[in-house]
């Protein structure tokens, strides 16, 4: 018997993926987290749908063999749900920690990106207007070393420079 998957479920999967991907492209970690949860629910639903037509409980003696549903995708979805739960808990903790440290939970720029931004601001004479303080180091090498030391202060709960 060839059966096509339920149309409504396919639409729901598409919506979950689209919304999830949109949210994952946001900068705030909590939105990224919601996006991840949406996409992984979409993926779990996908796994259920590809498991074939719905049927009875796959227990010998309870359901005739022809009417059983495939138990394997259900077991896999269960595993995937547990894993997503663990990941979400970790991301939540991380977003909270980021908020504790920086008073926001936005994913911050790469070190090199920040150096580029600083350099570009200097080149365009916008330095003071954008709130960059202090003199720029004379050479690129010194600038790099300075940026590194700024990041090397592991132990201190120091708020990052907010570039926005």
């Amino acid at each position: 018997m060839i059966s096509t998957p339920d149309f409504v479920l396919v639409v729901v999967i598409a919506v979950l993926f689209a919304g999830g991907v949109y949210l994952m492209l946001e900068r705030s970690l909590s939105r990224v987290l919601i996006g991840i949860i949406l996409v992984s629910n979409g993926a779990n639903l996908l796994m259920l749908v590809v498991g074939g037509p719905p049927g009875g409980a796959p227990i010998v003696g309870m359901t005739p063999e022809q009417e059983m549903s495939d138990p394997l995708p259900q077991a896999m979805v269960l595993t995937a749900i547990v894993i997503t739960l663990g990941m979400s808990a970790f991301l939540l903790a991380m977003a909270y920690r980021s908020w504790q440290l920086n008073e926001h939970d936005e994913v911050q720029d790469d070190l090199e990106d920040r150096r580029l931004a600083r350099q570009a601001a200097t080149d365009q004479g916008l330095r003071s207007e954008l709130g960059f303080d202090g003199a720029l180091p004379a050479t690129l090498d010194e600038d790099a070393a300075e940026a590194r030391d700024e990041m090397a202060l592991f132990g201190e709960e120091r708020a990052e420079v907010d570039w926005e």
Partner: peptide, 26 residues
Amino acid sequence: AARIRSGSIYVVVAIASSLVFVVAIA
């Protein structure tokens, strides 16, 4: 602070690739 900053990028990228893997498995 430094580890949370770099870690958040690592974690999000790793989870995104896992999601692709789950879809491939399905």
